[in-house]
């Protein structure tokens, strides 16, 4: 896990935090405060090894309204496999929360993927479905 996210700090919850939590809740349609930090999503996630913070940590940061979560790469690494969605004991869909965070970045015109970087070699083999899916998830 990235040290940046691990350092101990004092969190003061202000109106701005609540505003951010509310924004994510509205976009995702999920009640993030239902999360009880059991870690099932993190334990089930096939991509967790590549993430800088775990999915449950991401949920916690959203609960607390910490906008710093937007600098994490966790929600970009999410492949929308919905394993967390079917396993969450509280019935939350963390995949939707990740999508909401992606959309917040993309709507500020901050694309994650530069399509011009696709090599000629890859262009020859990549199926349409991969390109359409990646462009929908990573460009705004």
């Amino acid at each position: 896990m990235n040290e940046r996210f691990l350092r101990i700090k004092r969190i003061v919850l202000g109106p701005r935090n609540r505003e951010f939590s509310k924004k994510v809740e509205e976009l995702s349609g999920e009640t993030v405060n239902l999360c009880e930090q059991c870690g099932t999503c993190s334990g089930s996630c096939p991509m967790v090894g590549e993430m800088d913070i775990t999915p449950s940590f991401m949920m916690r940061m959203v609960q607390l309204g910490e906008e710093e979560v937007l600098e994490s790469k966790t929600f970009w690494i999410c492949a929308s496999c919905y394993t967390c969605s079917v396993r969450c004991p509280r019935g939350i869909d963390p995949a939707k929360v990740a999508e909401a965070l992606r959309q917040i970045k993309l709507r500020a015109a901050l694309d994650f993927l530069d399509i011009s970087k696709i090599t000629e070699e890859e262009a020859k083999i990549l199926p349409q479905i991969a390109l359409v899916a990646a462009l929908r998830k990573f460009t705004g």
């Binding site: 399509i115 696709i118 000629e120 020859k124 390109l131 462009l135 929908r136 460009t139």
Partner: peptide
Amino acid sequence: PDPEIFVRYYPELYR
């Protein structure tokens, strides 16, 4: 005449 040319020249097509 391969769809690969669209990926190369106009990849935004897939958006």
